[in-house]
Design a binder for these strands. Structure first.
Lengths: 254, 254
DNA sequence: TAGATTGTTAATCGATTAACAATC
DNA sequence: TAGATTGTTAATCGATTAACAATC
């Protein structure tokens, strides 16, 4: 999810909607699995099931890329793998730097899913002298001091931030100043970037909070519901109440 | 992002849109920071800036929760912290289990942002005998064999899957069978769950691929563009071409 | 009262979905 | 030809946004 402020709103490439772009990697993954099993063709129904979407959406998505299917037959797996890869820009090599080699940075460095999709970890950076010089995932850890040099020398355009929130904005600024134009941010903070720089964020805590919301709702359907009767007998309600459910908060406003 | 198949479509709690729910944690984070600085009130404009959204959206979001602001003044920070926390279900304790104690699982176990928001790591599970018995983030690692017992005894309703894709579905099935109804999935695979179980996924590779798409587009605005003239002189185009741009693929369909 | 800021309205935009004509 | 499946249409739904009346 890109931050609202930094993400360009409607300048879609060849008119491919953002929601479609976000699903192309899902299709690509499912297609790659089919390709490895040497499956020659696949229908929109089968592929949609494998990708976890419905087939109407899939066909609509593919229609933005072109007419790559054959009526009555389906889609050629290899051909579609190539087309989606090309559309996503995965037919070229993307050097990335990972800033912050804690557990999360190490997890990313070790993740095999990157290399296979054209992403090459150009460098691991950390400011901890105890880490620099050491090897993580078969790569030496460089000092953050060398960020600008490494970004420039390797033509890095994608940076991954896996440090605590406190230092994230400063690292972000340095990455951008050095030429990085896409940032994947794992720090739980809002990053401010100039126009033209894309930021996507992955926020572990936020995901859990959204789950908690739905979890609470599930529980409430059985347990909490009786506290708020479905239908209240009509009567004078002269006391305006804060909030939709009259729940009295522990902390009242001034 | 929940998988399309498993996420209930429109059964919204008290009518709070899904997009709003996803932003509540952002507001909460910004408000917590203000609270720590003992700021008593905040305007929609200030808070929106801190959360990285625009103020119209924020006010609309808050309108779903109730009328918690004061015209001409703004919002009471403490009061709003409480209301959003309550709405998200963070005023209660949520025991979670983390299955898979590799770098990613360890990163999550060490993440301080959980405990402060009502999430309590009830157990760390791994199938590797070399890990079980050891301590990670001050907690003992239990063996995956004990999954059912631990989930039941601790009343766990939220499970986090941080193992490779291969074993994810099986672990998911066991979690669900044991009573878990919300799953945060880091494994790069589509999980199949019964109705009533929520799945959200965090996919590191997909985020990078989306960035690559936009990155490619930025580069294309300068470099690739000349290959496709903005306006083509009208003429006979008797040869129908595959794809919107006539790019000849390396792999042709059957 | 004058200034500030919320809460809501209404218009717009983007995404989803079912249905089916086109066509292999 | 008959059956299967795509690509597209059109309706619907949900999200965003600007503007401003309400009101502190």
């Amino acid at each position: 999810m890109a931050t609202g402020r930094t993400h360009r709103p409607a300048t879609r490439s060849r008119g491919i909607p953002e929601a479609t772009v976000a699903r192309l990697p899902l299709y690509l993954r499912a297609l790659t699995a089919l390709s490895e099993r040497s499956v020659p063709t696949v229908s929109s129904e089968e592929l949609a099931t494998a990708a976890g979407v419905n087939s109407a959406k899939l066909r609509k998505d593919f229609s933005y890329l072109g007419s790559y299917g054959t009526r009555g037959v389906g889609y050629d797996v290899e051909y579609l793998v190539y087309q989606i890869s090309r559309e996503l820009g995965l037919t070229q090599d993307w050097p990335v730097v990972i800033v912050g080699v804690g557990n999360l940075g190490a997890a990313l460095a070790n993740y095999g899913g990157f290399a296979s999709r054209g992403f090459r970890v150009a460098a691991l950076l950390d400011q901890d002298p105890a880490l620099t010089g050491r090897t993580v995932a078969g790569m030496p850890v460089s000092h953050t001091d060398d960020l600008e040099r490494i970004v420039t020398e390797n033509g890095v355009s994608i940076g991954v931030i896996t440090i605590p929130a406190g230092g994230a904005q400063q690292v972000c600024d340095r990455l951008v100043a050095a030429g990085v134009t896409s940032i994947l941010n794992f720090a739980p903070t809002v990053l401010s970037v100039p126009e033209g720089v894309d930021v996507r964020k992955v926020d572990l805590s936020i995901e859990l909070q959204i789950l908690a919301f739905h979890e609470q709702r599930k529980a409430g359907e059985d347990a909490t519901a009786p506290a708020a009767p479905a239908e209240l007998p009509a009567g004078p309600h002269t006391t305006p109440r804060k909030g939709p459910d009259g729940d009295v908060p522990a902390v009242m406003p001034a």
